[in-house]
Computed example of a mutant assay.
Amino acid sequence: MAHHSDITSDLDSDIVDSDDDEDNEEFTTFRGPWFNVVDPNSFIMPDPDFREETGPVSFYPGMLNRDVCVDERIVGFKGRHQLKQYISNKKAHRWGIKLWVLSDSTSGYTHHLNIYKGRRNERRSPNGQGYQAVMDLMEPHFYKEHHITFDSFFTSPKLVYDLLDKQTHSTGTVIKSRKDMPSSFKNAIMQKGDVKVKTRAGVMAVQWADRRVVSLLTTTGSARQIQTTNGKGREVSIPAIIDTYNLAMGGVDLGDQLILQFEPQFKSLKMWRKLLFHSLVTAAVYAYICYRDSFIVQYKMDHLKFHQQLCQELTGGFRQGSRNRQLRIIPVQHRTLARLSERHFPSKIPDGNRKRCAVCAGHGGGFRKTRIPWWCEDCRVGLCVEGCFRKFHTRINFEE
């Protein structure tokens, strides 16, 4: 495979036009100027020469599939802490602890994550926060021809070139006003369906007009038009690199969906508890993905059955604590009362008889003269099933 620095010099003059005065006037990088691609359908970037095995074996620690993606994740938390962040476009949790996540694009398997510690607690990178997050996550996996996908928060020409120097391919949407982007992209007037392609030193910049203008940077793939189906089921024509981005970018979101299915719903003012339980559920999702994609068995459990069996095997026969949750808040000196400590159940009064409720009747309520057919057989008193039965058996002064 040719090195990226030799690609531009070997291009056919019919495909690439170097007479693009607007972009050749000034360029602030040693990589050289951007060249205009005359025929995007004939211009193809090299494919990654992946050097690790793909498939189920890649789920073992330290190994990645070829296609991975980087995105942010929020662990829901509304208490007071300096790490708490707000992200408006996260529907599940807008407030919480932000994580940088490296995930498999196909399965949603989370390979690595870093906690964002805030602007004051992290070293400032001269290349930006998104640049440093991607480089930290991918550092153990350089020089293996991976293909990493990210969104416009992370993408910049500097990041794409530095990854390419470490033999790591990348694709990402990009803000057209980023430093070192083609100057003709910034004020381009395009109609729906128009495509503009430029290349420089192994990197391709694509600008495509759909409902709005989208700009991408990539080191692999092509901008040729392909037919695909949109969300409404209609056949549409889009550049191939757009389809590649759409397929590869959803890995972190897929992992979020699997985690949120069985995320514990509890309130806590302690940030470490939220992170702890998030880590446990994430580990359970790891196990499910490995089981689903690696083990060869005749019958495979779905996610719910797998999660239930995992919890049962972890707890085993070592469950401790009282079955009566309300008993924990009853003072010790009152736990000898039979109605507060024993197990009681509502039942119908025999022979169709009725009794007044011991809680709500005769205490100024609207049901003073009402008789009900339900009672507690052990306590021999009439009780309303909704509210009064629980109040009578959990409160010392149930008349209040």
Rank of each mutant, 00 (worst) to 15 (best):
A2T: 12
L64D: 07
E72P: 02
M190A: 08
P157I: 11
K305P: 00
Y288D: 09
T54D: 15
E342K: 15
H111T: 11
P331M: 09
M63C: 06
T110R: 05
T336K: 10
L102G: 05
F35M: 11
Q132P: 00
A248V: 01
R124W: 00
Y131E: 14
T106N: 13
H393A: 08
G172S: 08
L64K: 06
T282W: 06
G55M: 06
R80E: 13
R94C: 04
K186N: 08
D12G: 01
P33S: 08
N230G: 07
I97A: 09
E139F: 00
H363F: 03
L102A: 04
E342A: 12
I259S: 07
T168L: 01
D21L: 07
C311E: 14
L258Q: 12
K267G: 10
I15A: 03
P182S: 05
V214S: 06
T171Y: 01
H147I: 01
P239Q: 09
F367Y: 09
Q167K: 12
G387P: 10
E235K: 15
K84G: 09
L310A: 11
G250W: 02
M301S: 13
K267H: 09
F27C: 07
R328A: 13
N121E: 13
A223S: 14
V381Q: 04
E25I: 02
H393W: 02
N41F: 00
